[in-house]
Design a protein around this nucleic acid. Sequence first.
RNA 1: GCGCCACUAGCUCAGCUGGAUAGAGCGGCGGCCUCCGAAGCCGUAGGCCACAGGUUCGAAUCCUGUGUGGCGCGCCA
Length: 601
Amino acid sequence: MRRLIEGALADLARDGALPSAALGATFSVDRPKRAELGDVATNAPLALQKLAQMPPRAVAELLAERLRGAEGVREVAVAGAGFLNVRVTPAVFHAVLGDVLAAGVAYGRAPAATGERILLEFVSANPTGPLLISHGRGAILGDAVGTLLEAVGHRVTREYYVNDFGNQVRLLGESVRAMLEGRPAPAGGYGADYVRELAAWLGANAKEAVADPDPMALARAAVTRMLDGVPGSTVLPGIKTTLASLGVRHDAWFSEESLHRWGRVSAALIELSQRGYLEEREGALFFKSESEGDDKDRVVRKSDGLYTYFASDIAYHADKIARGYDRLIDVLGADHHGYQARVRGALRALGSKDEKLEVLLYQLVNLLRDGKPYKMGKRLGNLITIEEVVDEIDEAARRVGAGADALRYFYLSRRSDTTIDLDLEVAKKTSLDNPVFYLQYGYARACSMLARADEVFHVGTAALRLTPALAARLDQDDELAIVATLGRFPALLAEAAALREPHRIVFYAQELSQAFQSYFTRRKDDPVLPQEKHTREPGWEARWDWDKTRARLLWIEAIRSAYGAALRLLGITALPRMVRLDDAGRDGAAKATEDDEEAGT
RNA sequence: GCGCCACUAGCUCAGCUGGAUAGAGCGGCGGCCUCCGAAGCCGUAGGCCACAGGUUCGAAUCCUGUGUGGCGCGCCA
């Protein structure tokens, strides 16, 4: 439709009816807010008025004249100050339906590997403790952004940067050692339950690391356990396991320690030094990031001779560039936003284009309990892990995966730049009222109708073809409105990917589900499939309008495809059917969970 | 003090690359199951879009300022 309008404008310019300067204007081509106005609306006349130096209504009239008679256009109306409302022919809707049916769950996707090579770094939580509920946001956001980018044709490497070097890791090792020897944890060390479990396992299974005089040997063994988990432990399932249970995937695990081991850190610093970006002051080595737009210069080597975290970060980003990516995306929590300037500065100082780096910042998750701030601390021993929240919801919903779906929905349904309040009590109490189940229910309902059509009436959509005659049987406004919604999906997906905003997909899926479910409830008197009251009359089969049924089944199949595509992008399970939890069952399940918890405390 | 992010219905949030009468879920009120899944649907009440200026034919949307809240400003990671 946009092409049609652009074409019409170009024609007008060529004919001299419009100044060619007017072609530079940007305008919208959308569905009007009120469906009765038309199928497609554009504000082009309003947007063009300045450049065209004509009143908008005059532009609108010219454009309307040009569009009338164009293929697919049924009716054009000039409205308001200069809007153009267009009604399209049924053929346009049918073409959309054909596209969706042909593409299936791949609907809306661009051909693979047609875009940029992107390195997407996310989570990268310190491997000194289990993943907490607050880490979930970065994990799920990063994963969903990765999926979106892939869907529009980019080649994405998802990477977890493992901070297995430096103070924190050393302290983890020392805390384990202290635990093994019955001493209290060192200052700033770790003393939570999971360290006890970690120490017990390492003491029994990693004798070489325990015996090694190098304290880093034990620290490294501990990090490996934090990532892989302690077999059979619920306290320490392992970061990789937790991410897998959320459906979060990484392609690569990049070790910070390896940068040091292979001399990458010193090499990067030498490079900076040769370019005149390093300066020694008071015994420490500074990177002159202030000259590259940072607030102040940053230390890369402390006066005690040890490199800072930032030093490895320079080397890490230099390495990413060297690996040949077109774009580096770092998904970071808002508490790291200060990093951008210095890392950007370092890339620029190393002679790379800093525009390659894109920082996707997400605001933090505020934990509340009964409306009051809930402070978590590794030393307080009150850590809320992803694992435990997910398990609890799984149990309440009586399905493994329900917790991951609920958490993914929770995090993905909000824009990344707003702070989230997560009330643990409310989250538990309302886990079964989570809107994610609404999304899944709509999908299950579509599947269930298709299955019933196939099994009971032997009308499988796989064997059906959308012929023009069949397509013409879809003529109701609400049916065509949903087709129009399906038609929007590819553009929406492209936009969501470009803006790195998965929440747009959530709201789209919600809208689709709502329109779909509303349709069936409102049309109880005009069912797609024959009902009992029809089938008990002899000879009903000859009287039933099977073509209408076939047309609508294909329509449902198309909805199911787009719907499934959206859920897949979000990483939310598309369930072909959902086990009904009646009110008693839901209460019972919720109650059982509470009881269990009390028993466990 | 400086920087980043936000402020939209009672609550949680969409809408923000300017466009027509600002939307959804939850909660409130009132309806709808002998028939395609009621984890559903329909209706209804509820809004100085934080505030003040500015730009514009047009501002929830862009700019400036103010207020409130979150986060950051280590020779920590």
